[in-house]
Design a binder for these strands. Structure first.
Lengths: 145, 145
DNA sequence: TTGCTCCTCACGTCACGTGAGGTGGC
DNA sequence: TTGCTCCTCACGTCACGTGAGGTGGC
């Protein structure tokens, strides 16, 4: 049996996360100690591993409840995962649009600034450093297109 | 002067969004009518357009407050936008990781399922449709890599 | 007694959505 | 009087984080 603190160590999750999962009914402790402490079993650890796996896949906690709650209902599981993938694709598209918009904004600001402050050496130095950093960001944002 | 309903029509935002911006102090009405109705001016519309622009770039409302509140403080503006770009890049990376994890999950489920139910015609039909849809999703998720 | 871990509320985050209950103008 | 728009609370969402105030075991 593990205390909540030990389970934090094993799983890498925070105490409040595990408390939250208890509140949702996702991961109830196997039992309580005489002093009402939460105690978790090996099965708890296995279940929490599954939960973390789905979490890394972007599945909502409500859907994870479905996935781990009902044993082996293949079609429903597939539906949930495909719906999650769809939502992730939507999210990715939204973020990409935002990246494009903000990159254009930054570019146009930089262009006008360079014209305005052409005479200031110190400003140029900072600007050069910034442009270097920025070039890195743009590569990072658009390298997968 | 525009009522809140008219401003909704002009901006495409919901009433509750505009109320929320009022609460934050982002977009206060130009004045109130005798019956305490919010009234917005042409300047309000211009300001709201700016707010929407930054919103589409993924800037947080707190940062938008900084950007539109202080007039023309170039360097600070650039800092905010670059920080936002950095956060967007982080977000994009997280979503991509989740996409990869869940695509692998779906693939492995599909593979085992096809073996298990090889004899069932009706199941195959549904599966074929699913795989077609899924192939679309995967292209969508990985076409930019 | 001193630390340490544990407990249970309860409120905050972010950008809104959704009623509930009431008022004002045509 | 009937609709319509407007108003102000106040609570819900999602996945937790962060105290506050108290208890139990060594």
């Amino acid at each position: 049996m593990y205390t909540i603190h030990e389970l934090c160590g094993i799983s890498g999750l925070s105490r409040s996360t595990i408390l939250y999962y208890d509140g949702l009914g996702l991961l109830k402790p196997a039992q309580r100690s005489t002093s009402n402490y939460r105690l978790y079993s090996e099965d708890s650890v296995t279940l929490l591993e599954k939960i973390c796996l789905y979490r890394e896949a972007g599945v909502s906690l409500a859907d994870i409840g479905q996935l781990v709650g009902t044993p082996d209902n293949g079609d429903l599981n597939l539906d949930i995962l495909e719906r999650t993938l769809y939502q992730l694709n939507q999210q990715a598209q939204k973020v990409k649009n935002k990246q494009r918009v903000i990159i254009d904004m930054i570019k146009s600001i930089k262009d006008t600034k360079i014209d305005d402050d052409a005479e200031c050496e110190k400003y140029y130095a900072r600007q050069a450093r910034r442009i270097a950093l920025f070039a890195f960001d743009i590569r990072d944002a658009s390298s997968h297109e």
